[in-house]
Simulated scan of single mutants.
Amino acid sequence: MNLIELIFIAIGLSMDAFAIAICKGISIGKATIKDAAVVGLFFGGFQAIMPIIGYYVGEGFHGLVESFSYLIAAALLIILGLKMIKDSRGEKDTTKGLDFKNLLVLSVATSIDSLAVGISFSLTNVALFPAVVIIGLVTFIISFIGVKSGSFFGMKFQSGAEIFGGIILILIGLKVLLEGLGTI
């Protein structure tokens, strides 16, 4: 697999992280460079770690991972989307900043597909280290941009943007579920 192919794989894997990074930027409000970097590190880090895990899990568990990973990702995204909508109706906690547990759950939810990619890497003799570095870096950059973009629009539209972000998470979760069920 050449560099261009790896970059395209990384871009494809980072699209869910990008959409959710936009939602994080909306919910944060005035996101700093540090906020965007933290989200980028979480998403990029998990997108890089999961293929490593998948690579070593290998062919033996290939069917098991594929058979239920979409359910986990869909459930996490839908629950977080509903929580985001619910939170948009309450008072804002401006001192809270980024929530570690929330970022952890979102990072896992957006990187489950990377686990399956790691399994495919083990079957196709891909050089693992360069591949995960590229995936992690691309996801970091795209997530960073997503947070800053979401923050810009979130500051303009406040709670309406947070509701919209929650709806996006729910729709992504439903898309993951429907794809996993083979209906789309």
Rank of each mutant, 00 (worst) to 15 (best):
L115M: 15
F129I: 15
K92Q: 07
P130A: 07
F46S: 05
M1V: 14
K86V: 14
V133I: 15
K101W: 12
K92I: 14
G44P: 05
A48C: 11
I134Y: 06
K83P: 02
T124V: 09
N2D: 15
V133L: 13
L115W: 07
S114G: 14
K24T: 09
V147K: 00
A17V: 03
S151R: 04
I11Y: 06
C23R: 00
V133K: 11
A161F: 04
E179D: 15
A116E: 01
G166V: 02
S122V: 02
T110M: 09
A31C: 08
A37L: 13
D113V: 02
S143F: 00
F8W: 14
K101S: 11
A10L: 04
L137Q: 03
L71A: 13
F43Q: 13
G81V: 08
T95S: 14
L80W: 05
I52D: 03
K148P: 00
G45L: 10
G180E: 05
A75P: 11
A73F: 11
L103P: 04
N125G: 14
I167Y: 06
M84S: 07
A37E: 00
F157N: 10
I26G: 01
I79N: 01
G97I: 08
K175E: 11
A75R: 13
I49M: 13
A19W: 01
R89P: 02
E179R: 11
I135P: 00
I184M: 12
P130I: 09
F153M: 12
